[in-house]
Amino acid sequence: MNRSALPRRIVIPAVAVAVLAAAAGAVAAGTNAARRDDAPAAEQVAATAHDHGTHITSASGNTELAPFDLVETSVRREGDAVVFTEKVRGTAGDKTPDPVGTFGGSSVLSYVWPISLNAATVGFTKDSGTLALAATSHPDFDDTPLADENNNGKKDDDGGLWHAHWVILVPDTTRPDGALKVRDIAPGETPALPATWPGVPIYIDSPSYPTELTGQTVRIDVPMQVLGAPDTFSYDGVTAALKVNADLHDPLLRVENVFDVASGDLSLPGRFEN
């Protein structure tokens, strides 16, 4: 896998601050983090019959960027699908990255759902990091080589459209601030990877799940069988901006900014119940 041959094929929807790295370590070790009693009072977990579990209600105003200011995060079952949603104060997806014309140094915007299921659930190596679903936009490159999202007959020019990924998040050990990255695949390493892995040296999947941004809501529908019909799992919500490392070295993508965390502390207080 030659990085010089990857001008349009990589995305890293990650989150970064020290508390996020700590939570990632707990989940990777198989621990479903429970909500702390001293978590921010403005962030509440609300039980609803419709969700068959709990969703996360967040106070608005945590970021000036209304399209990334989380107010509600949920994961629920609808028929044969597990539906991941994030509701924001503004219009979801109203802001996308400004193109810079090159892969190196380009930006990614993301809506992310870290979950407590093991990485092996969707085909990655067992216990390889924190599994997260993400909706991303990045107009300078395309990393869904199997899909033609804009239906123009090409499969390599859709990166700016919001689309879904699975990623594995791990701490970026090259930085002192506890930031996370999508796990890199080292030369010679042969990890387990999903069938729709796009062929790039990171733990990422491009599954082409239905991804909709309508009004205030971001929605991704994941087939229930993909997750193995779990009885329950924990989740959280994050909005973040990323930047591609200009020299394309490990880590390939660095976290630029975390806009909002649904729980306030990434304690994964949301609970999906089948």
Rank of each mutant, 00 (worst) to 15 (best):
A5I: 15
L6I: 12
L6W: 00
P7I: 15
P13N: 14
A18F: 10
A22L: 14
A24I: 10
A34F: 11
D38A: 07
E43P: 00
E64Q: 06
A66E: 05
D69M: 10
V75D: 01
V75H: 01
E78K: 05
G79T: 11
F84E: 08
E86F: 03
G90Q: 08
D94M: 13
D98V: 15
V108C: 05
L109H: 04
S116F: 02
A119N: 01
A119P: 00
A120V: 04
G123A: 03
T130N: 01
N152C: 08
K155N: 06
K155T: 13
H163L: 11
A164C: 03
W166C: 04
P171E: 03
P176I: 06
D177L: 08
D184E: 15
P187T: 04
E189C: 09
A192T: 13
L193G: 01
L193S: 05
G215N: 08
Q216N: 14
V218K: 06
R219S: 03
I220K: 02
V226K: 15
V226I: 15
V226Q: 10
L227V: 14
P230W: 12
D231R: 14
V238D: 01
N245K: 09
D247R: 14
L252G: 10
L252M: 13
L253A: 13
S267V: 13
P269K: 03
G270R: 05
E273S: 10
